[in-house]
Each structure stands twice: as C-alpha cells, then as structure tokens.
C-alpha cells in the first residue's frame, strides 16, 4: 500500500509538473477588500493576469462609490430600490430600504460596530424610524458579487468563485472536480454544517446574527433590524438562501431573517433556503435540500446549546492559556 501511495504521489506530482510546464489550467486567486469585507476571487484557468485583477478591483471600487453616494437618480440604485420595495411589501415592512438613520443610530455601519455600548433607547429608535434615509446594503454586496461575476464572464473565465464575506457565486468546476462550497455553523466558528452542490452555477448568501453585532450586559445586539420595531429580529441564528443571483439571495436572506420567517414568497416558484433558529433547530425547503449535503443527521443541527456552552468554555480556556504564556 505504501508503494502504491508513493507511486500515486509521484505520478500526481509528475502530472502537475507536466501540466504546469505546458501552461495548463490551474487555480489562481485574488484577495482584496470591499463592501466592508474580504473579497476573494478564484479562477481555474491558464492564467489570471494582473490586468484582469486590476480591472476587477476597479469595478469593485466603482460599485463601492455608487453605494456610498446612494443617489436615487442612479440607475443601479434605482434597480436595487425597486427590488427592495418588493421585499418591503412581502414582509409587511420588516424589511425596509429606508433604515439608514436607524442603522446609523445603532452604529452597525461604523468601524466600531463590534464595540460594546449601550443600545439606543425606544425613543431614539422611534425617532430614527420616522426618517426615510436610504440604505441598500442588504442587496448591495450581493449585487456587487454579481457584477464581478459578469465581468469575469466578459473576460472569458468560465470557472470561478467570487466570495464577498460569504455572499458567493460559484460557476463551472475546478478542473475535474466541482468547486467545494461549505456552509459554516452559525455558532461554531470552526465547524461547518454541510456542503452546497454547485451544479454548474451557485448563487448563495447568508444573513446571520453573528456577522455584525455587539454585546452589552450579556445581551447580543446584531445588525439585522426589523423595520417595524427598529430592533434586532430574534427568531433565527442564520438564514441561507440559494437564488438565481447573489443579489436576490442576499435580499431574500435578509427579508426572511428580519421578518422572522413571516414573508410572502408566492412570487418565488421554488424558493431554496435553510433557517437555523435560536434553539438550534435547522429546517430547509425541498429545493435547498436538493443542493445541500448535510454534515448532520436529518433534522438535526448537530449541536445543542449545551454543546455550544462547552465549546465556548474550552475556547476561552485555550485563549486564557495563551495569554498566560505571554
């Protein structure tokens, strides 16, 4: 068996060397930052020249500028706003593109978003809800990922992944293998709950209460605000949606999350989404299930609250141990 393994390894190495010498396709990566998160672009191609990378970064910066300016007269802003208003109607106001003042009040767009602080008062929240300040970030990141994917297509790339902090599109394959896209556990940073099948193309986004939050007096305050109450929605840990575009997945994930699942999706033919509730109960639609390979037994999110408490305790002990050494 050892000889077989050694031979296999040698042949694999040889094959890789030959392919490389012939300039065969391989994986290339671009890491950059934008829309408040990391943006990782992977292509499987013969080459990924610097000029293409520069053009993609330029496109990313352009989109950032559009969303920073937030001009309702801009065609992109207008397009996103129309979609956002559909979700506002479908969720009876839980999802709203006009929560800019509220998000500013909570401080979730600030660089200090994670810093512990006293949450705003009910009066302050009521006041902010009366203001109609546009904020389209629930769709903007997904839209930007779609835009980068279109640019890759125009450049001639057929096999790629664009991943902006978990808002992701994957297309094609990595050589003979499919791209492998895992779904992380909303509470265990170091665990995944399963894998998504790319099947040619996958556009997916997750809204989670762990993505942008602060803790104050042991209470967890996250950025997914219900537009009716002005406060974080409390039913779910995470909502993951697969859709035709990442923008659609992004918007729908947020809308399902902030409405606590009370949403009219009758205009969606076969919605594909998975939700994990605060009590660790994981459910998914049949369309999502078709594309999901779970790490867990059916209807079992793999872990319980007790598991999580134990995990957190071990993690903290390790961290304290490290601090002691220093």
């Amino acid at each position: 068996m050892k000889i077989y393994r050694a031979l296999t390894l040698t042949l694999t190495t040889l094959a890789a060397t030959v392919l490389s010498a012939c300039g065969g396709p391989e994986e290339h990566e671009l890491l950059t930052y934008g829309m408040g998160t990391s943006v990782i672009i992977k292509v499987y191609a013969d080459d990924f020249p610097a000029a293409d990378k520069d053009a993609l970064i330029k496109e990313l910066r352009y989109q950032e500028a559009v969303f920073k300016k937030n001009d309702p007269a801009d065609s992109t802003i207008n397009y996103l706003l129309r979609d956002a208003l559909r979700y506002q109607k479908a969720t009876k106001g839980a999802f709203s593109p006009y929560l800019g003042a509220l998000i500013d009040l909570w401080g979730f767009d600030s660089e200090d978003a994670a810093v512990s602080r006293k949450p705003p008062s009910d009066d302050q929240i009521r006041q902010a809800l009366t203001q109609q300040k546009l904020n389209l970030y629930a769709l903007a990141k997904g839209y930007t990922v779609d835009t980068l994917a279109r640019k890759l297509e125009r450049m001639g790339y057929k096999n790629y992944i664009v991943n902006a902090g978990g808002d992701l599109i994957a297309k094609g394959k990595k050589g003979n293998q499919p791209w492998r896209v895992d779904v992380r556990h909303p509470r265990f940073v170091h665990r995944t709950v399963g894998q998504l099948k790319v099947d040619g193309k996958l556009a997916v986004a997750t809204s989670g209460d762990y993505q942008n939050y602060f803790v104050y007096e042991n209470e967890w305050y996250h950025h997914l605000l219900d537009g009716r109450t002005g406060k974080p929605a409390r039913k779910y840990q995470a909502v993951t949606v697969i859709a035709d575009s990442v923008m659609e997945a992004d918007a729908m994930a947020t809308a399902i999350f902030v409405s606590n699942g009370v949403i009219d999706l009758t205009d969606k033919r076969d919605p594909a989404f998975m939700v994990t509730t605060q009590d660790y109960h994981q459910t998914m639609t049949p369309a999502f299930q078709k594309r999901f390979i779970s790490n867990c037994p059916p209807n079992d999110p793999c872990v319980s609250r007790d598991d999580y408490a134990k995990y957190a305790e071990e993690r903290d002990a390790k961290m304290n141990g490290t601090n002691d050494k220093k």
Binding site: T37, E111, D182, H185, T240
Partner: peptide
Amino acid sequence: GDASLCVPNRLMVKIAGVAENSADAIVG
C-alpha cells in the same frame, strides 16, 4: 480554510496546506 480577518487593518491569516478535501469557499 480557517481564517482570521481584520477588515480595517486589511490583514488576513489563512491556513493552507496539502488538502484534497478542503473547501474552496465558506458561506455563512
């Protein structure tokens, strides 16, 4: 695939290795 990211510092630490079975991306 394990990673730690600090956006304002634009600094990321990412674990890599010879892994046939590791994910190309994580969502969530």
